[in-house]
Simulated assay, not measured.
Amino acid sequence: MPPPKELTKRDFESLSEFRYQLRRFLRFSEDAAESEGLTPLQYLLLLHVKGFPGREYATIGELAERLQAQHHGVVSLVTRCESAGFLARHQGTDDRRQVHVTLTDLGAEKLHRLAERHREVLQSLSDVFRVENISAFNDRT
């Protein structure tokens, strides 16, 4: 394998721009969540419940993986969201030790409004996050 090519000024500019735009998006997302009465982490939790592939619920362990958080921290987060009326817990049908977390109507409404706003912003950032812009940096290493 040939040695990696030297990083150029353009590489650093590309990486800087990518991180800048990513941070702008994350800041927007944080502010949008707070405008709906959610913390940014609560918004992500609702998103991961709704967006879990193939079904309308997720387990605590699956959510911990998606959030890259500790199991006990996710349990606390789910408890707070359940108390606020955004989520519900149900005992698993196949494995009664599992807890299935689902959105309530209130949680689904808040998530839907936020997802619409996020989609608009993501569309405006599509050029920044294009694969070829990111891969141009990777091609140099």
Rank of each mutant, 00 (worst) to 15 (best):
D11H: 14
D139S: 13
E6R: 14
R97T: 10
R55E: 13
R55D: 13
P40C: 02
R27A: 12
D139K: 14
R80W: 02
F129L: 06
S76T: 09
G85S: 04
H72L: 09
F18Y: 15
E6V: 15
F12N: 07
M1S: 15
L45I: 03
D127Y: 07
I134Q: 11
D105R: 03
R119D: 14
R66N: 06
R24K: 14
G37M: 03
E36K: 11
A58C: 06
R96M: 02
Y43P: 04
L38V: 00
K5L: 15
G54H: 04
D127T: 11
F52W: 12
R117T: 11
F86G: 00
R140Q: 15
G51F: 06
G37R: 07
D11W: 08
L114D: 12
Q21T: 11
E116W: 11
L22P: 05
E109F: 01
S35Q: 10
L22V: 09
E116Q: 15
H100Q: 12
T59A: 02
V74P: 00
H72P: 00
A108N: 12
R55F: 08
V121T: 10
Q42S: 04
Q98T: 08
I60K: 06
V99N: 01
E82A: 02
K110M: 11
F52R: 09
R66P: 04
E36N: 10
G85R: 03
L87C: 06
K50C: 00
E6I: 13
H90R: 12
L122R: 14
D94Y: 10
G85I: 01
P4L: 11
S29H: 10
L63F: 02
L122A: 09
F52Y: 15
H112L: 10
L77S: 02
S126W: 03
T59V: 05
F12A: 07
E120F: 12
G51M: 07
L22Y: 10
Y43C: 00
L125H: 15
A32G: 06
Q91L: 01
R117G: 06
Q91I: 02
E30P: 01
L125I: 02
L45S: 08
L46D: 01
I60L: 10
T102F: 00
F25H: 05
G54P: 05
K50H: 09
H100R: 10
I134C: 07
M1V: 15
L46M: 05
L22I: 05
R119V: 14
E17H: 13
H90P: 00
R119Y: 14
A33G: 05
I134W: 13
L26F: 09
Y43E: 03
L77T: 05
G51W: 08
D95E: 08
E56F: 00
A32R: 13
A64E: 13
S126R: 14
A64C: 07
S35K: 14
Q70G: 12
G107S: 02
M1T: 15
E109V: 09
G85Q: 06
K9N: 08
S83L: 10
F12E: 13
H100F: 07
E62K: 08
E56G: 00
G92H: 03
G54C: 07
V121I: 15
L47Y: 12
R140L: 09
E132W: 11
Q42Y: 01
L106R: 07
P2E: 15
R117N: 09
R66I: 01
V99F: 01
G107Q: 00
D31Y: 10
V74I: 02
V74D: 01
P3A: 13
S35F: 02
